[in-house]
């Protein structure tokens, strides 16, 4: 197929990588035309109008403005086209649906820890099934890192203090590079791993082999009790706190009159900064758990709360 003759082109790897490559090819062709034209004119002028060469130098272009207007307009229109093309693919790339198979990624100096909902944990590796969109929920324990899979033409920074969603899909089984692309200190270039895309059957085998010690949700449930969350949110206590069953994914009315969707980010923020978003009709009495729970533990708590709403 003609696409195979284009360098850097790995067709069929993912729904979007081909679009990015096509865009790249478009940019290359546009640039080649410009560079070609420029090189042609420069050599032509330099040869024909070199000092001492007898040639017609009369009738120089005196009025320049219509030239100026034409090449300004031409550049502008081309640029506008490239802008629109790049933007439309960009919005495709960064779209995430809420209900995919989630994998949790914790970045820290200098490793990638990934965890499947069933509890299978990996370091510097990520196994996923092919032809299925996977939603990554990423967090950083320390500095800014960047999750980069060159084969998918996809990256996103992982900034400490917030969750970052990213949807990935690989359509061809294989091993692919995973790089940290944002400089993060001494061993930045060692913060690399491998993404392994497998046929769905192989993947479920892999999941069972990896003998989950315990699913993340039940570890989260244990934390929920150890940290004392259940004391208030469990319903039996003296302090009135909103029950968490079924809250995930639903709109929550806040005391300031607004409403938010209870997604991962909201739940995380509620644990770390409880006073910033207080549920309507409750008192702001919940203590902050900032500094008391690690990113790994936070993830488990979020997954536990999610499981209370019947999500995987």
């Amino acid at each position: 197929m003609w696409r195979q003759w284009i360098p850097f082109w790995h067709p069929g790897l993912s729904p979007h990588s081909g679009d990015v490559d096509l865009l790249f090819t478009g940019l290359l062709i546009a640039s080649a035309l410009v560079v070609g034209l420029l090189f042609f004119l420069l050599t032509l002028f330099c040869a024909r109008y070199r000092a001492g060469n007898q040639t017609d130098r009369n009738h120089r272009v005196k009025k320049s403005w219509h030239w100026e207007v034409s090449w300004t307009a031409a550049s502008f229109v081309c640029f506008l086209g490239l802008f629109a093309w790049g933007a439309s693919v960009f919005f495709q790339i960064y779209r995430t649906q809420i209900d995919e198979h989630d994998v949790f990624v914790v970045a820290k100096q200098w490793m990638w820890k990934t965890q499947h909902p069933g509890g299978q944990a990996e370091i510097d590796a990520l196994h996923i099934p092919v032809k299925r969109p996977i939603r990554l929920v990423m967090a950083s324990q320390d500095v800014i890192h960047s999750f980069y899979i060159p084969a998918l033409r996809l990256k996103h920074d992982v900034v400490p203090g917030r969750y970052q969603d990213l949807e990935i899909e690989i359509d061809k089984p294989g091993h692919y590079h995973l790089f940290c692309a944002e400089y993060c200190g001494t061993d930045h270039s060692g913060m690399i791993g491998e993404v392994v895309a497998m046929e769905p059957a192989d993947f479920s085998n892999w999941l069972t082999q990896q003998a989950p010690s315990s699913p993340l949700a039940s570890e989260g449930g244990q934390l929920f009790r150890e940290l004392g969350c259940s004391g208030c949110h469990g319903g039996g206590g003296t302090v009135r706190a909103p029950p968490l069953e079924g809250v995930y994914g639903k709109p929550v009315p806040l005391s300031d009159g607004t409403t938010v969707i209870a997604d991962d980010r909201y739940i995380r923020d509620s644990i770390l900064m409880p006073r910033s978003q207080v549920v309507a009709s409750y008192q702001p009495v919940m203590p902050s758990f900032e500094g008391k729970v690690s990113e790994d533990q936070l993830l488990r708590l979020v997954i536990y709360i999610k499981s209370l709403a019947g999500h995987p």
Partner: peptide
Amino acid sequence: LGFIGLFTVGGLTGLFLACLAYDVHATDT
């Protein structure tokens, strides 16, 4: 003359980077 050629290449590749979808791949590389 060298400047014109090199600056043009630099400017054109600036467009690659200004192009959102390609920058996702190319940034920090």
